[in-house]
Simulated scan of single mutants.
Amino acid sequence: MTSPFAAPLVLQAQFSERVWGGRRLAPEAPSPVGEAWVVYEGNVVAGGPHAGRTLGGLSGAHPAEVLGSRAREERFPLLIKLLDCAEWLSVQVHPDDGQARELAGEGQLGKTEAWHILEAEPGAELIAGVRPGTGTDELRAAILEGRVMDHARRQPVSAGDTVLMPAGTLHALGPGLFLYEVQQTSDLTYRVYDWDRPPSAGRALHLRESALVTTNAQAAVEHSGPPRAGEAQELTRCDYFILERLAGGEAVEGDTRGESFHAVTVISGEARLRWEGGEVTLGALDSVVVPAALGTYRLEGDFTALRSRLP
């Protein structure tokens, strides 16, 4: 009997307007769109036997088949976004799992995330941690007194760079960046500074919480050359995910082995995803989840893609 998860799950992205957003993701939208949530538990499956169901609903009902043996719980564990930054995002920090439960309640998760820069205008930069030598007490006082920018560490970035951002690390994305973000399934954010923009609904500062969870760590910007044709190049890993860059030109082989789903987002070109029993064509910025139960597959064509999976 054929498994109901013997085919990839093609997902419908969800777009969100943001005060700092640009025009790359939805040029025809009436207001700037900052985020596309391309793989997360609320995404709806676009076709096939599971059309109309959400990724989270399928994960909860069929955890072994969708998530795989490495999953720690039945909730879909990752949230993958595309971000188009025309202005500075707020300076913010995320709690770890224990802090999330303590500050926001049982069932809440922390947020460790990683960024992969797809496009960067000349001079583009981001904030990734604090300046070396900043003490913990000094940082806490600066947050509470509204002086966090005295200690924020700005770093230049270029297309192809990757930044792993552990929970507790001060961070912000700057203008002129278009990027891929993979993170724990959590939207728990503490806003430290918002560039003196007028206060508005949903954009309050969280100075007390930020002072409790922000560490004096610095996050490194990793520079990696382009992968060879047919290669799966590891960009970063942590306790929550592995992020890889895939280069077409030659076939890229994949195998879930029943251990983890593979979330694939094409970032340029066009890819044909083939498996025993079918194929689907993915254009630029399309995303698909290969269920853990599917097993072997291959990606063919002239493309570059990013793949996230469980460690």
Rank of each mutant, 00 (worst) to 15 (best):
G60D: 09
G60V: 07
A61R: 15
A61L: 08
H62V: 07
H62K: 02
H62L: 02
P63H: 01
P63E: 00
P63I: 00
A64P: 00
A64M: 06
E65R: 08
L67E: 03
L67R: 04
G68I: 01
G68L: 07
S69Q: 11
S69V: 01
R70S: 11
A71T: 02
R72M: 07
E73S: 15
E73C: 09
E74H: 15
R75Y: 06
R75W: 09
P77F: 12
P77R: 12
L78R: 08
L79Q: 14
L79H: 05
L79G: 07
L79P: 08
I80Y: 08
I80N: 03
L83D: 09
D84F: 04
C85S: 15
C85E: 04
A86N: 07
L89A: 10
S90D: 07
V91K: 01
V93Q: 05
V93T: 05
V93G: 05
V93L: 04
H94Q: 01
D96R: 00
D96M: 00
D97I: 01
G98L: 10
G98Y: 00
Q99V: 08
A100M: 10
R101W: 03
R101A: 06
R101Q: 14
E102M: 05
E102R: 13
L103E: 11
L103W: 09
A104R: 08
A104S: 06
G105P: 11
